[in-house]
Amino acid sequence: MADRSQGSLVARRILRNPIAVAGLAIILGYLFIAAFAPHIAPFDPTAQDLSRSFAPISAGNPMGCDEFGRDILSRIIFGARTSLIIQFFSVCIALVIGVFLGALGGYFGGRLDEAIMRVMDVLLAFPGILLALAIVAMLGPDLRNLIIAIGVYSIPQFARITRGSVISVRQNDYVTAARAIGENQSSIILRYVLPNAISPIIIQTTLRMATVLLTAAGLGFLGLGVQPPEPEWGTMLSNARMYLRSAPMVAVFPGLSIMLVVLGFNFFGDGLQDALNPRLKE
């Protein structure tokens, strides 16, 4: 079971891994910007000023202005907030439902497990962004529907991972012992099984934060994400694309932001994987 000394060992391993530290720094910076967006952003992200349309990079507008003369830096900063909201809520939905279904199937096995896994197989048969795309197409594009769509499409990953580790933990002696002394099922799952399945779930959560952001931005790029004038990085890119030849810089910053944040979560998740999986370390 993950006790304190193991926690500090994991922390030490992460801090000794430059890639993981870089990831952590990016994530913390991102959280900070998202949290304090109104205090950091120099302008209102939706304030238009057509006279400043495509204004170049300057001291006043460090990233220039977009087609409506809105300050790109301010839109990027508020975009961080939008991204974080999407990431947080969609991963939460997937985490709660996925872990619940996975633990249920993995622990009880049999018909129930079979049924849950077949449903997951069906969801997984729509690869990548497609399931989210279809759900958004059905519900209509807005922030709430985007979160639902991305949340639903992430459920199978959590269900599978939880199920896998629950099955391997279930066979351990202490679980058998707890069963033998007649402890009740849900308390066995919560007290013994899940804590031991936690490492892969944590890793998956971190990596999923990255995937989810890419998907949200991708849907935004296709015009099926958060709708303008709400600042969202993918949607910003989608608009910038139309002026690619005349104002290429407008397309650079939103994409860079997406990449940086995704990179942060992937770097950190990769370090976490190494730190929680000491088998790979000598």
Binding site: L214, G218, A251, G255, L256, I258, M259, L263
Partner: peptide
């Protein structure tokens, strides 16, 4: 990790540029 983190659409736009 850069490759995995690259937004396809943006990467495409950059290379196209």
């Amino acid at each position: 990790l850069f490759g995995i983190s690259m937004p396809v659409f943006w990467w495409g736009l950059l290379l196209m540029l």
